[in-house]
Write a protein that binds this DNA or RNA. Structure first.
Lengths: 316, 316
DNA sequence: CTGTTAGCGCGTTCAG
DNA sequence: CTGAACGCGCTAACAG
């Protein structure tokens, strides 16, 4: 009742273990005859390859590390991170691999060298990076690292948020503030550029407050906006959580939404539709995370941005 | 510049590889002298054991499989599942392990047998189970499987939801409906029993609608409740997503919350506090998932339920 | 195209 | 307490 072995399959098929290996792993040549024999023997015996042995022999690791660079330890509880991690964990299951999750400090180089030295790590998916980090990867990580977000596998946030901004403008909003992402993050650039271009082209004032994707900062940002620019008639954000915080902040100040101030988010988290009907743009986190995981494992990196569509609801 | 090997450490320490192994893995005896020598040699060489080789030699797998039983394929995108998967992926990182995520159909026995045959799986964490599944695990999975939810590592949902129900009663609600979890799920039992006991003890009518943790079903459930029992003055649910759906459904019917009908959720998802201030109860998903992962890997299973506290906000 | 021979790096008998 | 030898299951390099 013991599990059949590659050697046993080979014996039964009347070939050597090497040939059986070539057939079953799909690498290397094999005649049609032995191919059939091996496949049949494997099927009859109910042979299941041993992924761990396979990886050891090949010198490859058994897990992909999802490394998230952030200053907050709590980042690993972030819904975005969790969604991406889960999507990758589902994507690599068929390959017999697993996903590990780790936070990296903003100065991540040292930590990445330790990662490169860990033989159990097959590949790395990096999030929260800035420009420099990707260019200065440890040599051992080249070719098996993929970035998720700006510079890597990413959503077309400029298009999604740009469309929302245009809609605000089309519906008469003229003093639009933006709660952006943190400065140390590469992914903060695209939405900010989209905002800058649009306000410049339309001759609108530029009103930017730096946020960090949390609801708390959204609340604070709303207060800041109201204090510095009391006549603001729309607040765009780069995350639904922040937008919900903004809604709270506006409510606390007695501002009506959308009559006095319109609000938009980004991410289209499932609950954004539920209540109170937040206007936002879609963010296909799961497909992106999957593509990043595959790219890290050697698949060709998708050479386009994943589309983002505006979703208009009650807050605009 | 090649990575040092156990053999190299042994050579440098002047002992055999076997002794070095015994020292570094902590199993088997070793004299103080050789112990020190090996440790020093390892430190000097910067030796890092190879987790994959270690696992292969020991016959252990390299990943824990988070298997979620559900009828919907989309369950893997559920926020609860994602949070738990991410927490486990962070928890097992130090051990060099990864997490894979897979859905199991309601009739899961066959699928579990395939899992048992997969040598890359070190342990299994099961969610969405019912009574029978845990009692009829494949023999190969015994001792390396932990359940998350009722019957395993679980939150004290009866206490959390019970406290919310008591609060509704204390504040004058007398016709309280419950949107429960699905019947095929073991975890649906505890909240339902808490509800039944409380309504019976207080002489209140029993009004139960079956839900499934989604916002959509929450919307539908609100409509059902209003139709069947128009004088309902409170709706308790077993998930925040459902509660947000209920709020939508009530809003669509022109019902005021909490004046006409109070609403409670369960889970305390981060955004429940943001807007519109949903009353709910805490659900420490991350610690629970961590504990389940450790239990599956052989740690003693926590012998108590994880506490749930009511969090009262605007909807009650 | 195929078989033989070496590993991959470590754990674990079993004598001594 | 220690070392030699073998096993884990598979793949890669090399002749043929």
């Amino acid at each position: 009742m013991t599990r059949p072995d590659l050697a046993e399959v080979a014996r039964r098929a009347g070939v050597s273990a090497a040939t059986a290996s070539r057939v079953l792993s799909g690498r290397g040549p094999a005649s049609t005859a032995s191919r059939d024999a091996v496949r049949r023997a494997a099927a009859e015996l109910g042979y299941v390859p041993h992924p761990v042995a396979r990886r050891l022999a090949r010198g490859a690791g058994t897990r992909i590390l999802f490394a998230v660079r952030d200053r907050r330890a709590g980042i690993l509880h972030d819904p975005y991170v969790a969604r991406a991690a889960a999507a990758m964990a589902a994507a690599v299951d068929p390959d017999g691999l697993g996903v590990s999750l780790r936070r990296l400090p903003l100065a991540a180089t040292t930590a990445l060298e330790a990662v490169a030295a860990d033989r159990s790590v097959a590949a790395v998916v990096l999030a929260g990076h800035d420009r420099g980090l990707l260019d200065h990867l440890p040599a051992g990580l080249r070719g098996r690292t993929a970035a998720i977000g700006a510079g890597g596998t990413d959503v077309d946030s400029a298009a999604g948020i740009g469309a929302l901004l245009r809609h605000l403008h089309d519906t008469g909003r003229r003093r639009i503030a933006l709660v952006s992402g943190p400065r140390w993050l590469a992914a903060s650039g695209a939405p900010l550029r989209a905002y800058t271009e649009l306000t410049r082209a339309a001759g609108l004032p530029s009103r930017v407050v730096t946020g960090d994707f949390t609801a708390e900062r959204g609340r604070a940002a709303a207060a800041t906006v109201l204090r510095r620019w009391p006549d603001t008639d729309a607040i765009a954000t780069v995350s639904d959580a922040t937008a919900l915080g903004v809604l709270q902040g506006l409510a606390a100040a007695g501002i009506r939404v959308p009559q006095d101030v319109a609000v938009t988010g980004f991410d289209d988290i499932p609950l954004a539709s539920a209540y109170p009907g937040l206007s936002t743009a879609t963010h296909p986190v799961e497909p992106i995370a999957q593509a990043a995981a595959r790219a890290a494992l050697g698949a060709p990196a998708p050479r386009r941005l994943f589309p983002s569509r505006p979703v208009l609801r009650a807050t605009t």
